[in-house]
Simulated scan of single mutants.
Amino acid sequence: MNIIRNTLLAAMIALPLAGVAHSDKPHPAKSGPVVKEQKPWGIAGDAKAADRTIEVAMSDDMRFTPDRIEVRQGETIRFVVRNTGKVMHEFVIGTKQENDQHAAMMVKFPNMEHDEPYMAHVAPGKNGEIVWTFNRAGDFAFACLIAGHYQAGMVGKIVVAAVNKGKKSS
């Protein structure tokens, strides 16, 4: 398994495509107000309403730290994502299925630009930020969808615990 992972990592680093759109050029800063569109995993949040901040490190060993995050339904989280590596990384929140599909598109179209409130593209040595309200319970995912990174295992899990709105006694 380590041989396969190391081979994937070496291929990803050597791939010229991995460096074209994401590894050396951050996306332009978001302009204007954030569009708040309901997604299966929540909705863009307001920084002033953040309940807490969670720091996530992204590294060139294609891992997130932490790689599992637990939140409560209704909680607004300010994610500070720190790229500790030497190549571009991103932090994208979604469902596993959505991330699988997006990762496949990124392999086919590595220059594809995208900028959604649930994505942070972070240059080496820099920080990014996402503010997200988890208004739906369930198991969700986060990942780096840059070509080769996702395939090398750069993924994590977000568990959103349902809020119990009062139990009926039996």
Results as ranks from 00 to 15, higher is better:
Phe140His: 08
Arg5His: 15
Tyr150Ala: 15
Ala44Thr: 07
Asp61Gln: 03
His22Gly: 12
Val131His: 08
Gly45Asn: 02
Met58Trp: 06
Ala143Met: 02
Pro124Leu: 07
Asp67Met: 02
Ala137His: 13
Pro40Gly: 08
Lys96Asn: 13
Met106Cys: 01
Val163Ser: 05
Asn111Arg: 05
Lys126Met: 15
Ala152Trp: 12
Ser31Glu: 12
Thr133Cys: 00
Val159Gly: 11
Glu37Trp: 03
Met154Tyr: 11
Met106Pro: 10
Ala29Ser: 05
Ala143Lys: 10
Lys30His: 15
Lys108Met: 08
Met154Val: 07
Gly42Trp: 00
Ile4Glu: 06
Gln73Phe: 00
Ile158Met: 11
Ile43Gln: 01
Glu129Gly: 00
Arg82His: 14
Ala152Arg: 03
Arg63Trp: 05
Val34Trp: 09
Leu8Asp: 03
Lys30Gln: 14
Gly85His: 03
Ser31Lys: 08
Met58Ile: 09
Ile13Met: 10
Thr65Phe: 03
Glu113Gly: 13
Lys86Phe: 13
Val155Lys: 09
Arg68Ala: 04
Arg78Cys: 09
His121Gln: 02
Gly85Ile: 04
Ser23Val: 03
Ala123Cys: 01
Phe140Gly: 09
Ser169Phe: 06
Met106Val: 02
Asn127Tyr: 01
Val35Met: 09
Glu116Tyr: 10
Lys86Met: 14
Ala147Ile: 12
Glu70Trp: 02
Glu129Arg: 09
Gly19Tyr: 07
Asp61Cys: 07
Lys86Ile: 06
Gly19Gln: 13
Phe79Arg: 02
Gly45Ser: 14
His22Cys: 14
Val56Thr: 03
Met112Cys: 10
Leu15Cys: 15
Met58Arg: 04
Ala152Pro: 12
Lys30Tyr: 04
Glu98Cys: 01
Glu75Gly: 02
Ile3Ala: 08
Lys167Ala: 15
Phe109Lys: 12
Gly128Cys: 11
Ala14Cys: 14
Asn83Lys: 02
His22Ala: 05
Val163Gln: 08
Met105Thr: 03
Ile43Thr: 03
Thr84Gly: 09
His114Leu: 05
Asp51Met: 00
Gly94Arg: 03
Asp60Leu: 10
Ile130Gln: 01
Asn111Glu: 11
Ile43Cys: 00
Met1Gly: 14
Arg82Lys: 02
Pro16Phe: 02
Met12Lys: 12
Gln151Ile: 07
Asn127Asp: 02
Leu8Arg: 13
Val71Gln: 11
Phe64Leu: 12
Ala21Arg: 13
Trp41Phe: 12
Ile93Ala: 13
Asn6Gln: 11
